[in-house]
């Protein structure tokens, strides 16, 4: 199974690189922010596969921290870069 996991991780990396095209291309800032989400999910999946392939359980912790940071990163990124005037993003 180790080879399968490594192959899977490599495949995910390739989809990530393809997704980079959208970051470069835009055209709006929102399209670039969407890439942050793409990176978060794909990186977590990659790390989980590598944890299994390398028998390195610590990588699962890295995936967990990535997932936690993704929540914080997204909110901060949107707040800093795209705050609409006079609006609070927490209000609903």
């Amino acid at each position: 199974m180790t080879l399968v996991y490594l192959g899977g991780a490599l495949f995910l990396l390739l989809t990530l690189v393809a997704g980079l095209w959208r970051v470069l291309r835009g055209p709006t800032a929102a399209d670039r922010m969407l890439a942050a989400q793409l990176f978060g999910t794909t990186a977590v999946a990659c790390l989980l596969l590598l944890a299994e392939a390398d028998r390195a359980p610590a990588l699962r912790d890295v995936a967990l921290v990535f997932a936690l940071l993704a929540v914080v990163a997204v909110v901060t990124f949107v707040r800093r870069n795209w705050r609409a005037a006079g609006e609070d993003l927490d209000a609903d």
Partner: peptide, 19 residues
């Protein structure tokens, strides 16, 4: 880990769409 990613991506999806 999956649940955390679910939270992160639904939140970011909504925030990006809204902005």
């Amino acid at each position: 880990v999956w649940l955390l990613v679910l939270v992160a991506s639904t939140l970011s999806c909504h925030l990006v769409a809204r902005t």
